[in-house]
């Protein structure tokens, strides 16, 4: 009698722990890329070249693996989006090509656009989501923060 009671208690306890872990996993927010340690640090143009020469490999390496990527480059343009976020476009060899970095709303509200003029060099950390090829080529970084 006592033994079966014990087993029942253990099962109940496991169920509660399991449920708590499940609930935690389920509610877990998306990784904070802007504040994570960078998995890759490279020039924006180098990242662009990897996508440009073999986008399949680059998607596997950076995108699917959810790596935190830190790029540095020269600002060619900045844009304020409808949702309040800011996108910083980094200059590539061709004027039609960019690495675009969209900051989190939090990071967007912290900066003054006047401090990010054309030609300034900048380091940005975030999540690389892929490359669009409809208008020139654009490697896209989202959930970004300015990295010192």
């Amino acid at each position: 009698m006592k033994k079966s009671y014990k087993i029942l208690m253990i099962i109940a306890l496991l169920a509660v722990i399991g449920g708590a872990i499940g609930y935690y996993m389920y509610q877990k927010p998306v990784k904070n890329f802007a504040d994570s340690k960078a998995d890759y640090t490279l020039a924006a143009s180098a990242l662009f070249n990897e996508f440009s020469t073999n986008s399949e490999e680059a998607v596997k390496k950076y995108v699917t693996a959810d790596k935190t990527v830190l790029v540095d480059g020269i600002i060619s343009d900045t844009k304020k989006n409808d949702d309040g976020t800011i996108t910083i476009f980094l200059k590539m060899q061709s004027d039609d090509d960019f690495v675009s970095c969209t900051l989190t709303l939090d990071a967007s509200q912290k900066i003054n656009l006047a401090d990010y003029p054309k030609g300034k060099s900048v380091k940005i950390k975030g999540q690389c989501s892929g490359m669009q090829e409809l208008i020139g080529k654009e490697v896209i970084m989202i959930r970004c923060g300015i990295s010192a």
Partner: peptide
């Protein structure tokens, strides 16, 4: 009219939901 939509650029709040979506 043309669109190019990168699937990984869809932002969810919950990590698990984003993972399942992708």
């Amino acid at each position: 009219l043309a669109f190019d939509v990168i699937i990984k650029s869809f932002k969810f709040k919950k990590a698990l939901m984003e993972e399942h979506f992708n």
